[in-house]
Design a protein around this nucleic acid. Structure first.
Lengths: 237, 237
DNA sequence: TCAAAAGTGTTATCCGTACACCCATGA
DNA sequence: TCATGGGTGTACGGATAACACTTTTGA
């Protein structure tokens, strides 16, 4: 990301390299993305930042995630590097700095093109207290179907993240941070349906995830509803 | 990569970022990787280089590939970013420079840690005239099963490239640069078997690739052998 | 006429999907 | 006892794997 998190001390970071996090938020039947809004511009961006000179890139991504959500040890996965020479310009950043009365030398590397490593994360947005960065005027969850005006190629980055997430969903199960400790099969199914954006068959879905061998069946859950009580499950460790 | 292709003018490049190319070479029944040998050190590395400040990373990867093989417009794919803070040190590079009597300021960024974007390519190694870089004493094809002593985490990078290549082979067909203009089904099968490192059934393999609809059957090929002459195929464009 | 490898028809097996029925629950 | 949603047995169909037979070629 290039527009928020403007460095106080540029020399601490690796030049012209950034990390952009696509933080997917799930709750109920909604899939959202966390987007900060650039101050005084009608422009939204991805939460991003730079990599410290001696920092693992994985750690940098975790740090950026924590800065916005306060969350630690979240499922986070690198999915692509965006490196077209003209994918970003310093113009947007200059506007931001001007709007916020921040001075950075004209010849700083922060105005050059950026290569950005994309990570995506999955969180339950109802449990997150989002934090507004010092150069944001807002930081909000946006439904995946209704994205606002996005900076640079961030719309493309979100699209690629979503494709990768959906592709991965076949093999790996990624509900870890998105569901409560214990949950019903119905809840897990809704998670899948929301991410994949298509309905799934109840019967076959149950069989499929059970044969994966990653769920442990606990006791029943009596909801008070006039029907059979569903089992509760938890992920086996 | 960090040990070959030492920059003459460091300021042209993005700092602490490199590209490493895993160039797979195929011919006969062998799968190899192109590895330059660092001068005067018993150490091999991946062909790599830096990204020019205003260069697409894709173009940088193509440039690095061309530097070693002379080949252009080759199938090339980004597969992962290696960014552990301690994955490389400047020590190896210093030895190289010392061995080659090259002077670079002690405080140059080339001695810092590197984040490296991995690309892999596929070529026919019998058609390539490999080029020795100015800091290499050799540049040779190594069988994938017998890799020499490799610098940094380059063994890990090769492993990851190989996994990605095998994974991709199911959907996309990647024989384009590896086979002659026309080829027999047997040749294509050997290519697949060599990459996947496992035998495939002749009958089912034929049906599978034919249903993909990417091959066009040409005339027969009379080899002089005492059996039915196989058809020749070519990739449809 | 024979061996060797190519090509293809047929059968078996597996897996994902669809349909069905039964079960538990509280009104 | 009824409606509602959960759990699971079973049947269907397409795709893949396995088997078997035929064809072609030059020795």
């Amino acid at each position: 990301m290039e527009s928020d998190k403007i460095v106080i001390d540029e020399s601490k970071y690796i030049q012209q390299l950034s990390i952009d996090c696509v933080i997917f938020g799930f709750h109920g039947e909604q899939l959202k993305v966390l987007l900060p809004k650039v101050k005084q511009l009608e422009l939204w961006s991805l939460p991003g930042g730079y990599v410290l000179k001696k920092e693992d890139i994985e750690a940098a991504a975790q740090r950026i995630l924590e800065e916005r959500t306060g969350l630690r040890d979240i499922y986070l996965e690198q999915f692509y590097v965006f490196g077209r020479a003209n994918r970003s310009t310093g113009e947007t950043l200059k506007k931001v700095l001007l709007a916020n009365s921040i001075q950075i030398p004209e010849d700083s590397w922060v105005f050059e093109r950026f290569i950005s490593i994309g990570y995506y994360a999955l969180v339950d947005f109802s449990k997150v207290n989002t934090k507004i960065g010092i150069y944001d005027e807002a930081c909000e969850w946006h439904d995946i179907h209704q994205l606002p005006n996005l900076a640079f190629d961030h719309a493309e980055i979100i699209q690629k993240a979503l494709e990768t997430l959906r592709f991965m969903l076949d093999d790996k199960l990624v509900g870890l941070n998105l569901l409560p400790e214990t949950f019903t099969m119905k809840e897990l199914q809704i998670l899948y349906e929301t991410i994949l954006d298509k309905p799934l068959r109840r019967d076959n879905f149950q069989r499929k995830v059970l044969t994966m061998g990653i769920l442990e069946r606990i006791e029943k859950k009596f909801t008070g509803a006039a029907h059979k009580a569903p089992y509760l499950y938890k992920f086996v460790k």
